[in-house]
Design a protein around this nucleic acid. Structure first.
Length: 419
RNA sequence: GUGGAUGUAGCUCAGCAGGUAGAGCACCUGGUUGUGGUCCAGGAUGUCGCGGGUUCGAGCCCCGUCAUUCACCCCA
């Protein structure tokens, strides 16, 4: 037994499975890279107030789930629980919003939430995110949703659904909120939920418990309370998605747990992930910039969970991308051969051929075993006998066929045969 | 924070009226002292999560504890 293990709710990514994770992360980001989104990277921790003000004092993320710390200098920091607030902060700080709008950014990294771990929910998790800042245009909302769907599709993911809703804006949301509160207060609910009615009533709609959902059947619907501007905006988003061959489900109970959302909200849920079914989600946050002390900057964004997407692919039985394999494996016999073949391996690598070497002075048999395990197509084998003739043995590990090749030409020969 | 389940070899798991551990895979060695993958022969490995209790005797029963896991909650 080791003394140490990975902290609760975390896991290590190790070969060979780690290759799938990397590939998924890249696949999620690929559509963004060809759609005008620039890469942004922000610190793993921020002033705790950025999140409490941005994400919302009433959210679970802020009240229960943040990893906070006080520095030796007395600063109150928090490990980032999500990406949007940080990215917006960075953009405002660098005055990107004074340049051409919208500012389109994408990012990828680790996030931290102190939660009870369970299937698909970790205390350290990885997201790919995208934000489009400074434009109020339904096409931008649609663009982001389309890019997310295209990313999932490129991986072969099928069993996911897109839930879509509009939460209204500062005109119509308060009216709806009050109407909902009035309705909820009349229900038979537990104490915690009753408290939520006063702080964040919309989130009650999200409750999974059947006895709660049953009582919500007659609740006022946001869709009936949207102002004309919000309704028009939402209809345009829906039309653009339909035109792009994106199927979605209108879900008036989709709320999401971050306070900054306005108008468009959406979530991608997967059918075979158990309880933690959201593989991605996002929405519009027209008021966030001002909440952080910035100018008015209507924006929209999303985050896709890399861990959960990997789980979803597994659940669908989709073959996960594997590591790029080694093409050539060198097996030396003796010191002289070791130097000669190490040189060959270096040369091959410099020429772009992936090559590996039997390190550790193994015997021939073991070295051949390593060659086989590496998945290499060819083994280059040489001992004193061969080198005396200026040759090496080139073995095709699939057919077992072996030929002698001059040492000087082996790199060139291999490059040719690997084409 | 609240519930349920599970903790046995590197991995997946079996074990049972309570009589002090086993399979498959993986690993190692040899068959082949200059050749892998297949095949054959052989081999190593466990404080049965930890602590206490009951018992002549506990992997199995009881209590506690820790860890993992699933669900609520929340969300990626």
């Amino acid at each position: 037994m080791n003394t140490f293990s990975a902290p609760k709710g975390t896991y290590d990514l190790l070969p060979p499975e780690s290759a799938a994770f990397l590939a998924v992360r890249e696949a999620l980001a690929a559509p963004l890279k060809r759609s005008g989104y620039g890469y942004v990277e922000t610190p793993g921790f921020e002033d705790v107030k950025l999140f409490s003000r941005g994400v919302g004092e009433s959210t679970d993320i802020v009240t229960k789930e943040m990893y906070t710390l006080t520095t030796k200098g007395g600063d109150e920091l928090a490990l980032r629980p999500e990406g949007t607030a940080s990215v917006l902060r960075a953009a405002l700080e660098a005055n990107l919003h004074r340049g051409p709008l919208p500012v389109k950014l994408w990012y990828s990294g680790s996030y931290y939430r102190y939660e009870r771990p369970q299937a698909g929910r970790y205390r350290h998790f990885s997201q790919v995110g995208a934000e489009a800042l400074g434009a109020e245009d339904p096409a931008l909302d649609a663009e982001l949703i389309i890019l997310a769907v295209d990313a999932y599709r490129s991986l072969g993911l099928r069993d996911f659904r897109l839930l879509l809703n509009s939460l209204g804006d500062k005109e119509c949301r308060p009216v709806y909120r009050a109407a909902l509160q009035e309705y909820l207060r009349g229900l038979d609910l537990d104490e915690e939920t009753r408290a939520r009615i006063e702080i964040n009533p919309l989130r009650v709609l999200d409750d999974k418990r059947e006895q709660v959902q049953r009582q919500l059947a007659g609740a006022p619907r946001i869709s009936d309370h949207l102002c004309d501007a919000c309704r028009e905006y939402h209809d345009q988003v829906r039309e653009l998605l339909t035109a792009a061959d994106i199927t979605f489900e209108d879900d008036v109970k989709l709320v999401r747990g971050l306070d900054y959302y306005t108008r468009t909200t959406f979530e991608f849920v997967h059918g075979r992930l158990g309880s933690q079914s959201a593989v991605g989600g996002g929405g519009r946050y027209d008021g966030l910039s001002q909440m952080l002390g910035g100018p008015e900057l209507p924006s929209v964004g999303w985050a896709l969970g890399v861990d959960r997407t990997v789980l979803a692919l597994k659940a669908e039985g989709i073959e996960l991308p594997s590591a790029g394999r080694t093409d050539v494996f060198a097996v030396p016999l003796g010191e002289q051969a070791r130097r000669a073949l190490f040189g060959v391996v270096t040369e091959l690598r410099r020429q772009g051929v992936s090559a590996d070497f039997a390190f550790g002075g193994k015997g021939l048999k073991n070295a051949m075993k390593s060659a086989n395990r590496s998945g290499a197509r060819f083994a280059v084998i040489a001992g004193e006998r061969d080198l005396a003739d200026g040759e090496v043995q080139l073995k095709d590990l699939e057919s077992g066929e072996q030929t002698s090749v001059a040492l000087e030409t082996v790199a060139a020969t291999l490059r040719e045969r690997l084409l």
